[in-house]
Design a protein around this nucleic acid. Sequence first.
RNA 1: GCCCGGGUGGCGUAACAGGUAGACGCGGCGGUCUUAAACACCGCUGUCCUUCGGGGCGUGGGGGUUCAAGUCCCUCCCCGGGCACCA
Length: 915
Amino acid sequence: MDYDHQKTEREWQERWEAEGLYRSVVDWDRPKHYALTMLPYPSGDLHMGHWYAMTPSDARARYMRMKGFNVLFPMGFDAFGLPAENAAVQRNIHPAEWTWSNIERMRVQIRSMGAMIDWEREAVSCDPEYYEWTEWLFRRFYEGGIAYRGEAIVNWSPTLQTVLANEQVIDGKDERTGQPVIQKKMEQWFFSITDYADELLNFTGIDWPEPVKAMQTNWIGRSEGAEVIFEMETGDEVPVFTTRPDTLWGATFMVLAPEHPLVDTLMTEEHRVAVDEYRVAAAAQSELERMQTDKEKTGVFTGGYAINPVNEQRIPVWVADYVLLSYGSGAIMAVPAHDQRDFEFARQFGLPIAPVIRPKGGDRLNGDTMEAAYIGPGTMVDSGPIDGVVTTDAKGRANPSVAAAIDWLEEHGAGTEAINYRMRDWLISRQRYWGAPIPMIYRADGTVEPAPDLPVLLPEAPEFTGGPSPLATDEAFLATVDSDGNPARRDSDTLDTFMCSSWYPYRYLSPHYDASAFDPDEAAYWLPVDTYTGGAEHATMHLLYTRFFTKAMRDVGVFADTETAMRAHGRDPEGLFDEPMTQSRNQGQILGEERPGDRLVVAGEWVDGRFVAESIRVDDHAASDAGPVVGELIRRTERTLQVQTADHMVTVEVPEDAEVEVPGIDGINDVTQLRHYLEVQRMSKSKGNTVNPDELVERYGADTVRLYLMFAFDWEKGGPWDSRGISGARRFIEDVWKIGTTEYEPGTVSADASLALRRAAHQTITKVDRDMEAFKWNTAIAALMTLRNDLLEARRTTAVSLEAWNEAVDLLLVLLAPIAPHVTEEIWSQRGNAESIHLQSWPEADPEVAADQTVTLVVQVNGKVRDRVEVSPDIDEETAIAAAMASERIQEWLTKGEVRKIIARPPNLVNLVIN
RNA sequence: GCCCGGGUGGCGUAACAGGUAGACGCGGCGGUCUUAAACACCGCUGUCCUUCGGGGCGUGGGGGUUCAAGUCCCUCCCCGGGCACCA
């Protein structure tokens, strides 16, 4: 009987659900494992990326369960956000209706994965019973001094009609739509994430991917240095942050950001017009233009002077847009001799350049003739008290000259050691409707207080115009009373949806709990998350926010009841609320299938019937007479391209030095770039290279799709989809089906063959166990395929005993169960097992059975393999050398020279060095 | 510019602690079955030479350490990602 995946998968999914196989219940007698995968946004349809993220996470959770852990694997939806409002504008459908119908649809799709999700713990962030507690957490943060209202220059997206957090702006554009963002001064709500900067930089005790740690570290951008106070001639004081206080004696001017508040008081009448003009021009520039680093330095003199505190020198104060108000204090001391930006500025405006570092092993620098700033080690010169101190490439106090300068500054009250961060506080106000309302009230006297009753429910907004948020004009919503019963106004903004997703692992524990954000008894058992999986694209957003959130929750006492409950069960809560997730892993991205069909224009010449390219251009709109060979790319190999021109097929040879012009990459490219352009494309509807998982599931079954996704890629890397490859996965499933469901009849049984199969099976346990532990799905499956091959071979030879056969088959099924849960369950049941395969414990390899009887001893001569000999695994050095020398082939080699040295690594290798 | 991650057959990938490079799969080639094709099954498949015993070369390029290097060190090139006038 053929394997009917549709029937099997449907039936078992229903049965698992009916029998509550995946309900997870607190059980203090068993070790727990909280497995979590990033919750999806309900965009409408599950795509291959969801399958790629979720099904291996499920396999891993199943594996942990078989290893004896009480596993919680929940699912939910991150359901607030702009797409729902866009749908409302475009299709006249309420965001709630759009969102909930998408969730309905995606629940069905997720169920088709056959994952061990405990649906009773599902949490949806747009549900009032969820966002009541998002609001509650905001209030706790407000009361705890972590949420504050402040005026700041913020990123305003005219397209989205809202402000955005720094993390959501990339290259001056909104990360979702790619539309430009402008700078605007507004009063908004912030979380003081910068207070946690140092704690966030500390990753000890958590097992997170190196790239994510690096990205977060980079993002936080800690710089060590000093804050130096410069007194202006007007009497004002301007603090300046510098990482190089040791170069203070070389500061020849000062620069303020155009938006700096002191510019007004500092500038003299004669410079007012010029400065104002400059400020207007700077303000008119988009963030994008301002960030261009290659343009010429611009700026203008204010007419004001500051006093350099280290040497009382009078230095001019300029305004320039290369100084950013958002970093440090928005003012810098300029040391043109040792900072390239300051150098360029000084040359541009003829300002003096005063070197204070004598390069290591070099002569003194001359400020008039230098061609670039000197940034390197040396000795301090012309620097008063720190003259002669050595300067190195080290940062902060680790650099002797910096340490000396800081000491001097602190001694003389001119400055202090300081640390500055690139990261800014988290802006959480959004001028949008579809989010959790900010539960704050503005009283008539101008003070602010938290809304007394939670949740503040979203009103049924009547109209979505695409303009300003409907909340901003909803009088019925805005009008309220304060705690004294006087008329007051509500905040019309909603919370950044990243706030909702920052605490969802806690809501999963008790999604319907109404006494607090989560049930402390559940939390005491399940927290923290043991394994978290998801995309690395969230490294400086969700993954950073959620770490901050847990620390902030800890500090405002949200976990107090949980700690009490833990102690009652004898669990020490110390340090358990410092990080939300102990271990984290990122899957890569599934890209679109390599797709021929690009239109190429090739120039070159004919050589022996082949066309050798000199230049290749990818141009989808090229006319057919644009070059000697113009046509569709049909096939590509390493060095050749098959191009279908208007009338015939041409094989184009691509030499290493051919010029390649690829859209989106400027300048002249090479063959590698062409290769990557043709190969790697993200899946997108506009490119027409999407793969619909639903169709594949219907055709091949969920088990096959799961298995293929886990087999065909290095999970942490991802790669382009290959629709041909899936047949191998399906073939494997069918082979397992045949092996497991058709009777095996032994013929002439041999003890050796039986033991060989048993050995193979037990060795497979070890491999699969190691690989699943490490998320190496592809090699785990390769090991299982090898066992499949062994079983097929055993069936052909019929030399294996029935016992050995059955043991190997059962092991194959149990080891495969986390990856392909349906087919293994069906075969398991057909083989007469009453209890679910998913309740079996993970097998352990019997070391005696798994031990190799013989091993291959590699014999090398001068490091090159010349022969292989089968030997006993416990062979000693002498015997191994003797065995190696005994080989006929080796004897032949030995005639060519004298043995000078023998390296023996029994039982694997003997290397004979001859000359 | 700085910081991560990469570069291995036609393709996806594998190689635990320096010790048999290419496991496993896709694709391709040959064969069996079939009226035929598909499926299935069997065999071959890095590359060049070969007297068919085997031998040379081969993990982005160059150099080094070592009895032995995909793996370690130096250097350069290329690809992907992150940050970036960050003081």
